[in-house]
Design a protein around this nucleic acid. Structure first.
Lengths: 350, 350
DNA sequence: TTGTATGCGTTATCAG
DNA sequence: CTGATAACGCATACAA
């Protein structure tokens, strides 16, 4: 690897001059020298050493991208089709703006913090991180941070987030099911924090508009590993008899359930309606095609990077709380039913 | 950020001693000093500056992972379900072994080379790179490289590759179709290089065993963007009348075609059998579930990283040419048909 | 057992 | 317009 010093020696000039030419500070250098240096630069295929640059400039040009790895979901976090599309968009955007992407997936926040600090990362993108972890990170890392899909009380700590109209998504889907006559709807979520929780709020709101109270036991939490465990699926299968519709917080769950149920003779949507969320590829190719809530992961990723890089370059964040639009996509996994349940007093049994 | 020097000053000792303690060269330091330093290390949450380390040690602890971005496929390369699962495994393995992962997806090999060199990456993982590009990279980058899914003449340049029994995969699937009575089989590939080509070799071999010559026009190249273009799909649809089976080089293509055809009234597998390759999630959840060739992306990724890191640490590569096993997975997308075509002379028409 | 000095490649300051 | 020189944070050879 040829260095600036090497080249300076070759040309019999000082390294400062070479450096100046490299940085286009051509006003301070004579035309003749500029040409000489540029020619050599070409010949040597000079590539700067970024470690050295980072050291002097206290800026690494690295953007850290951290994913909380929820164990058990798919083979790994990246395998989530929604995540992988978004990550691809993030990578492309980071690279096209002249930065480098270092990616971490971990449960261990301390390790994450060490990694960020040790590379003196210029900016940080946090995906699916809970508020407590964010606070911990913020206490040690002082450069710009942008969150994707985080929810937290703004009064505790302000932050830049790129998210989704989750509440509206939950609302519209529920509304659709209610309009189609469904009353016994199970809400299937990963957990009761973050996006899933907000979608549930929307769910409740739609029910409220129909004058129905949602019941706690209709909220079914699916831990990711349950999908792979026969006994858990069996249990959901048994539960499904109490419902006319399963409303899932991701296409992935919806499709996995659909496949499992179908293999056991349940006809979708004749016997049970199922809906998804995200509108990734599997939603379109499954049979029946999934009624779901569309969002745009590419846009989400790009926007988050855009905000982050603006902040890295010293601008104010263009927006603190972005909520990208959702759109209800009606396909074939929901059947119209004659409303019942409410009239029979099912919802007031306790 | 507290530095070694800072801490040395606080303790009134030299930075060498602090450095020694950090690196566990405790034999050269008195017990008392060790304790003093370790205590301070804790208190200050000392994190080393990796740029500085890279500079002195000429080793960055970064592993570069490069994907050739074939434009138009999915939203981006990472969105390929096979790729994303493998990438997740790669990331986990790199991190768990104490290295950092920097990821690049690009078409531009020059840019890739610059990125690798500028960070002085310790090792490089190349995924789906053609031989010419590999040669170019090798000519500039002298540290260990491991390829995934590459094929090239070994006599030109030796290299470490982690691949798949592609030929056997192509062979077994074709054999299966032939056994089921299919004779008019279209082979759908992305391109005619790399893994797809080798799978085609296996395809031809199976045909040869049946005493049938494959015809060039049965080899349909699908450029990734065709999947999204109505006219191309229409064309494939028209072509499909000439065949009883479509054998695809990925589950993705298989499922996309299946969906398109189904929407136009073609019954799968009654009217047309379709097979995939990879056995990713969509193969299991589609309807009919896909008959496909299984491979293990997690293992592939992990193994490649393992080989690479051994080489980085100075060992000989454990193996030069690894071919992970494939397994035919028979599901519901292939129907048995009465063999015809060969007898009718279809294959000798020209 | 501890400290001093030097260099890694780059940029920045400042003097010529 | 050009060139010494110092500094970034760390590791190491060598001296004490």
């Amino acid at each position: 690897m040829v260095t600036i010093k090497d080249m300076a020696e070759m040309l019999g000039i000082s390294s400062t001059t070479v450096s100046n030419v490299i940085h286009g500070k051509t006003s301070e250098v004579s035309q003749k020298t500029v040409e000489k240096v540029e020619k050599l630069l070409e010949e040597c295929d000079y590539v700067p050493n970024n470690s050295a640059r980072s050291l002097t400039q206290n800026s690494s040009k690295i953007i850290g991208v951290a994913l909380k790895s929820r164990k058990g979901k798919y083979d790994n976090v990246m395998a989530d089709p929604f995540m992988s599309v978004m990550l691809g968009a993030i990578e492309a955007e980071i690279r096209s703006r002249g930065y480098y992407m270092m990616i971490y997936t971990t449960d261990d926040i301390s390790e994450l913090i060490r990694n960020i600090l040790t590379w003196n990362v210029d900016g940080l993108l946090l995906i699916g991180i809970v508020h407590d972890d964010f606070v911990r990170i913020k206490s040690r890392y002082k450069k710009p941070v942008v969150l994707i899909d985080s929810y937290a009380p703004r009064d505790i700590m302000n932050y830049v987030n790129v998210g989704l109209e989750d509440e509206r998504g939950g609302y519209e889907m529920t509304r659709h099911l209610l309009d189609k006559g469904h009353r016994r709807i199970a809400f299937l979520a990963d957990n009761m924090e973050g996006v899933d929780y907000i979608r549930y709020i929307g769910h409740q709101k739609a029910f409220a508009e129909y004058g129905i109270r949602t019941r706690e036991k209709d909220l079914l939490i699916i831990r990711p590993d349950m999908i792979e465990r026969e006994s858990s699926m069996q249990e959901l299968y048994t539960l499904s008899r109490n419902y006319t519709a399963f409303m899932c917080c991701s296409d992935y769950y919806a499709v996995m359930l659909m496949t499992y149920f179908r293999d056991r003779g349940v006809k979708i949507p004749e016997d049970l309606s199922i809906t998804g969320f995200d509108d990734v590829m599997i939603a379109r190719v499954s049979l029946p095609a999934l009624t779901t809530v569309h969002q745009n992961p590419t846009k989400k990723g790009r926007l988050a990077v855009d905000y982050l890089l603006r902040m890295v370059q010293g601008e104010e964040p263009p927006e603190w709380d972005t909520k990208l639009p959702v759109e209800l996509v009606i396909r074939d996994s929901v059947k119209a039913v004659t409303p019942y349940g409410n009239d029979e007093g099912v919802f007031t049994e306790e």
